[in-house]
């Protein structure tokens, strides 16, 4: 396990923020798909209780980078990851590490809602059961209710917990997936364009939820909607051709970005 350098990459030097700690740290992360280098050496910290947005044009590597944070790239053949990624100082690419445990600690929500073809209850209960987080039925009921409440879905589904999760609307399904992710008490939640398949009202609900969840979790969100990044995130990271161009407080990125590439992208002057 490598030591994390004490300087926090990409952090603004403001006293209120210097106090916060890095939850996850990526150092010199490179990702190759066979010979193609998709991520070219990225250093980035995800702080405790922050929402960080990854933006950039298609193919810039933002989703690839997001996936390195809970080793989702392991499932892709020919994909090779170099560098270190740590969670609370622990190297997540350590061969002795239990990947299933890691993915409970670093949960993920995908672009398209993907509930299991099971009941709403079982969708949420599946993870806690797998990880042995509940000691009995009563415990499990409590975890399910709490998770659904935190995902803002409880009132809408409490009378039909035994109905299939796939029968919910798109926005509800996505909140169900978020409930499923938080049921296993994660520390970090990764979201890969969680609202791209949702209408504006469902999107607003998810964004509201992200804001609430950020008091307990660190959240990294990939989004193609710059306005969404502006609305929900504390910091914004701009990726371009596999490199991290700029990471700054979101307000700064959207009013006076440091890098001209960031400026070109967010003002729509690309290509």
């Amino acid at each position: 396990m490598k030591m994390i350098s004490p300087d926090v990459i990409g952090q603004r030097k403001e006293s209120s923020e210097v106090a916060s700690k890095a939850k996850m740290s990526a150092r010199s992360v490179r990702v190759f798909y066979s010979e193609v280098e998709a991520i070219k050496g990225i250093d980035l910290d995800i702080m405790e209780n922050e929402v960080i947005a990854f933006i950039g044009p298609s193919g810039c590597g933002k989703s690839t980078f997001l996936r390195t944070l809970n080793r989702m790239n392991d499932t892709i053949e020919d994909c090779r990851v170099e560098g270190t990624v740590t969670l609370d100082g622990q190297d997540i690419y350590d061969p002795s590490l239990d990947v299933v445990m890691l993915r409970a600690q670093v949960g993920m929500v995908f672009q398209k809602p993907n509930p299991f073809p099971k009941s709403i209850y079982d969708n949420v209960a599946y993870g806690p059961k797998l990880h042995g987080l509940a000691r009995g039925r009563g415990d499990l009921d409590e975890i399910v209710e709490n998770s659904l409440r935190r995902a803002g879905l409880w009132d809408e589904v409490k009378d039909r917990l035994d109905k299939p999760g796939t029968g919910l609307s798109g926005g509800q399904q996505q909140r169900l997936c978020i409930a499923r992710a938080i049921a296993v008490s994660p520390e970090v939640i990764l979201m890969d364009e969680p609202c791209s398949a949702l209408d504006p009202i469902a999107t607003a609900k998810i964004e509201e939820l992200i804001d609430e969840l950020s008091s307990q979790y660190s959240i990294a969100i990939v989004t193609h909607s710059m306005q969404q990044a502006a609305r929900v995130s504390d910091r914004t990271a701009y990726f371009h051709l596999g490199e991290l161009i700029e990471v700054n407080n979101t307000e700064k990125v959207f009013t006076q970005p440091d890098h001209h590439l960031t400026e070109a992208y967010i003002t729509g002057r690309f290509g």
């Binding site: 710059m226 959207f254 009013t255 970005p257 960031t262 967010i266």
Partner: peptide
């Protein structure tokens, strides 16, 4: 247009 950065300024 939801302008940003130099456009917004």
């Amino acid at each position: 247009r939801a302008p940003a950065a130099s456009d917004l300024r």
